[in-house]
């Protein structure tokens, strides 16, 4: 099998080589189709020299420069994209921060408002209470003063009544005895005759 295979391969290879071998035979004449070994030789030499020279000195530098530029461009594009993404991220972050700050400020304002409200209410309450207390105190004072005035008035009235009565009944009446009598009388009429 392997022998057959290698034989089958050898046949086409020989066939392939045949035209090349045939070309080696020199021919003569100056026609269009004449074979010129020297020209073929020179063509091969010049082509190979040019090929290596151009590959090394012309195509390689140009492609290297172009590739470097393409790479730089790609990098610039990539970095621009990265920067843009970063900027977008930062923007979103800032926006979120601003939103948070705004919310916080609102909260602070609300709190302050609530506190102020409460404080105002408290103050009002307190003022009202104080006012009430002052009024109550004043009323008590008034009551007390009135009671004292009433008591004073009563004593004065008693004094004057006694004085008047004593003037009238000077001689015949014992002062202590009569005073007791009048006092007793006044005490007995006090609750009904004296206004509150």
């Amino acid at each position: 099998m392997r022998v057959t295979r290698s034989f089958l391969m050898a046949v086409p290879l020989t066939l392939a080589a045949a035209p090349l071998m045939a070309q080696e035979a020199p021919s003569s004449g100056g026609s269009l189709m004449s074979l010129q070994t020297n020209l073929m030789f020179w063509t091969l030499v010049i082509f190979l020299v040019l090929f290596f020279a151009l590959s090394k000195l012309a195509f390689k530098p140009i492609t290297a420069a172009v590739e470097a530029r393409e790479k730089a461009l790609e990098e610039a594009l990539a970095s621009a994209k990265r920067d843009r993404e970063e900027a977008a991220q930062l923007l979103a972050q800032h926006r979120a921060q601003i939103d948070a700050a705004r919310g916080e400020a609102q909260q602070v304002i609300n709190d302050a408002r609530a506190t102020a409200e409460k404080m105002r209410n408290d103050l009002l309450e307190k003022a009202r209470a104080e006012q009430q207390a002052t009024i109550a105190h004043a009323q008590q004072e008034i009551q007390r003063e009135k009671e004292r005035a009433v008591a004073d008035l009563r004593r004065e009235a008693v004094e004057m009544a006694i004085l008047g009565a004593s003037k009238v009944i000077e001689e015949n009446l014992d002062s202590d005895k009569n005073r007791k009598l009048v006092d007793a009388f006044l005490s007995s009429i006090k609750p009904s005759k004296v206004p509150a």
Binding site: L50, A53, L54, L57, A58, F59, P61, I62
Partner: peptide, 13 residues
């Protein structure tokens, strides 16, 4: 051909 491409490559680089 060589001079053409070589000088162009030099200028390019």
């Amino acid at each position: 051909c060589f001079l053409f491409l070589y000088s162009a490559a030099r200028a390019h680089v």
